[in-house]
């Protein structure tokens, strides 16, 4: 691991390529993911940013005929290795999706879902962890009196914070966000952005976003992707103020295409 002024490297993506069948969706991506920092992945639709994000928790393994080349190293282990225990990996690297995905059960059970998978049966420990996760996700005050109610009754913004709480409950090292505020109104988006800035003290965050202002507001590092390739990776300020690459400059100034 290398230490720089701007943080410790938690994960490193080395020469990563990804194929949907024979279609190469990512080409030789190499970049670090810094610990306790927010890294944004930006770029036009179809550039491979979501594909890259879904490599980190091996979501692609759910579908047949996909394969990876290269490596992503976390704690000295290549997580793309065939022998990797995906259940353990996904406990370490959580994911929040574009649309809220409340499970058809109570608010409490939603947050407790991952904990119960890890055999935390002790009800007082469970209740404690659920409360902590809901507080971290800034949702506790809104739901503390109706934990037993079905999660489908929450508003969209609340459901998305519930998804974050559910992910936080299992104490992940990394949280992946896949355009997690794009389906929300500005007030809910603001709440989640504040939340992420708070959360990065404890976890590392990688966020895919279409919203460049958002990337500029919240992230420490930004990676711009284009047609499956990493165009530029740097500190967010540099990417937006003094980009080295012409494509980056055109993209962040909105003169793209």
């Amino acid at each position: 691991m290398t230490t720089t002024d701007s943080g410790v490297e938690l994960m490193s993506v080395n020469n990563l390529s990804f194929f949907y069948g024979t279609n190469k969706a990512l080409s030789e991506v190499t970049m670090p993911i810094k610990k306790n920092r927010i890294t944004s992945l930006i770029g036009p639709s179809g550039c491979g940013k979501t594909t890259l994000l879904r490599c980190f928790n091996r979501m692609h393994d759910l579908y047949p005929r996909n394969h990876y080349e290269g490596e992503i190293v976390l704690d000295g282990v290549n997580i793309l290795d065939k022998s990797m225990d995906l259940i353990k990996l996904r406990g370490k690297i959580g994911m929040v999706f574009q649309k809220p995905t409340p499970f058809p059960m109570s608010i409490f059970d939603n947050v407790a879902y991952g904990l119960r998978l890890n055999d935390i049966g002790n009800s007082s420990v469970l209740a404690e962890k659920v409360e902590k996760a809901l507080r971290q996700a800034a949702l506790w005050d809104e739901v503390k009196d109706r934990l037993k109610q079905n999660a489908a009754g929450l508003s969209g913004g609340q459901q998305q914070r519930l998804s974050i709480a559910r992910t936080l409950a299992v104490d992940p090292e990394v949280i992946l966000l896949d355009e997690s505020t794009s389906a929300l109104d500005p007030v809910s988006t603001q709440k989640i952005e504040d939340l992420l800035l708070e959360l990065k003290k404890e976890v590392t965050i990688v966020a895919v976003t279409h919203n460049m202002q958002q990337a500029a507001r919240i992230s420490d590092f930004t990676a711009l992707m284009y047609i499956g390739k990493l165009v530029e990776y740097d500190e967010t300020e540099t990417i937006f103020a003094r980009p080295a690459n012409e494509i980056t400059e055109r993209y962040v100034t909105g003169r793209f295409g």
Binding site: M59, F97, T101, G114, L117
Partner: peptide
């Protein structure tokens, strides 16, 4: 996406089916 959300929490497939999809 509902199944993916459960997988993303580290649930094995049989758990995803019994605790999320069946429900």
């Amino acid at each position: 996406t509902l199944r993916e959300a459960a997988f993303a929490l580290g649930a094995p497939y049989h758990k995803v089916i019994t605790s999320v999809v069946w429900r």
